[in-house]
Design a protein around this nucleic acid. Structure first.
Lengths: 236, 236
DNA sequence: ATATTAAACGTCAAATCAACGATTATTATT
DNA sequence: AATAATAATCGTTGATTTGACGTTTAATAT
């Protein structure tokens, strides 16, 4: 029987960068660690990969434990493996980022983790190399969202154009001309207008839209251009 | 003292997808495994991550062992972690892809690995999940090269425009209008024309160019458009 | 009636694009 | 000296896209 006996085995973990949007603000979900090392410090939600799971499955499980949600947008960011990134014992971490609609999120479930949503630009510093992970995840989202419609994953089933524009403005930290934005959004043919309106933020009310799932899948690979000159912003 | 005693430790490996261009053809470097499991089958070059290295360092080392080359373009592709991807024992593999100029590569060094360059479209099937890795690496390169000038990493220090165009045509498996291509390449201002010519493939001879390293770095993030309508090709 | 936000419609000039035609340059071969 | 072959430049075309900006209409809470 063949074995790899002479090699060192290490721990493998998955950490999740969880982005959420509540219709107004872009946020990130962090937990306060209830155990050593780095007890009581802020951290990404993570966990060790179990014997029977693959990496994506581990990320799904960890995400479900914290949010109670399944079938989220979840994408591998990168593997991190500096020898000393975990002070206790060498641990390779595979980072995943998730995009979720905060309204779907049930607060109760996460109480045991002391989880909290932070504004994306106002989050505390994190343990280990988690700050790096968050930074790289933000970059990845900016990059990808300039070309593909991933930001829809952050929105509720029903959403308004002003909400969508607000989301893009926050992700790119820029102002977008509303008339051009609407024209571009309409030209993608990705949205279905509902009869219902959201009157919470204006007197007239803004029509709700839903995403046309089929067209979304079909057009996912086509490059979008909601952001004027994204190449000027990409390295922000 | 705190420990993570109850967790399972696993092997962590790095596998390298090595792309090379010899001025005419796009190729991939594979090794014939000289050891079990899967002895004598074709495989990517890989190795276990050592105690003192980070992941990138492990990839550099493995690449150096096989090619004798350092300071190559090397980028993490993805971590692969299906529980049964290695039949002997669970092994997480972090895949990296490298872009190299085949002319720099010294054959002798790799003899002990029975390494061989294969045409990108004519490679044998590989062990474990290595075929998947190669496929995903090809996709990544197509995606990235449509936006950033990474394909220059495959070219010799001195190269000609016909070589460059040939490379793009192979990566995207398409024909490109030469007049428009030249115009686009010139407009990037990335190339420096030499006085010397390459007369190996024509009577007139084609001027050699070198890459302006500074401008290359400065403009790396700007989106290129050497390929007409890349979004139509991206899913190939 | 008024204020306020939503959103549709239009305009305009500048830039970019792919497709294509034509020409010139260089040199090995005949 | 003519020919063939590849390299490279220059130009044109019309179509499309772009960002910036102006105007108007719609709906409704106050």
């Amino acid at each position: 029987m063949i074995t790899y006996t002479e090699q060192t085995r290490v721990l493998v973990a998955v950490d999740c960068i969880i982005f959420g949007f509540d219709g107004e603000q872009l946020k990130i979900l962090l937990i306060k660690r209830g155990f050593e090392p780095a007890k009581d410090q802020w951290s990404l939600m993570g966990g060790f990969v179990q014997a029977n799971e693959n990496l994506y499955g581990a990320a799904e499980r960890i995400l479900y434990q914290l949010t109670g949600l399944k079938d989220l947008y979840l994408e591998q960011l990168k593997a991190y493996g500096n020898p000393d990134r975990d002070p206790i014992e060498r641990t390779i971490s595979v980072a995943y980022f998730a995009l979720i609609d905060i309204n779907k999120y049930k607060t109760q479930i996460s109480d045991r983790y002391h989880a909290e949503w932070f504004l994306i630009n106002d989050a505390p510093s994190l343990i280990f190399d988690h700050d790096t992970m968050v930074e790289e995840a933000k970059k990845r989202i900016r990059y990808k969202a300039a070309l593909h419609p991933i930001l829809f994953e952050l929105l509720p089933k029903k959403f308004t154009i002003p909400q969508l524009q607000n989301l893009y403005e926050q992700v790119y930290n820029t102002k977008i001309d509303n008339r051009n934005f609407i024209r571009k959004v309409n030209s993608t043919d990705l949205l279905i207008k509902l009869t219902e309106k959201d009157k919470s933020s204006s007197k007239r009310g803004a029509f709700y839209f839903t995403l046309d799932k089929n067209k979304y899948k079909a057009k996912f690979q086509s490059f979008l251009n909601f952001i004027p000159n994204p190449e000027h912003l990409i390295s922000m």
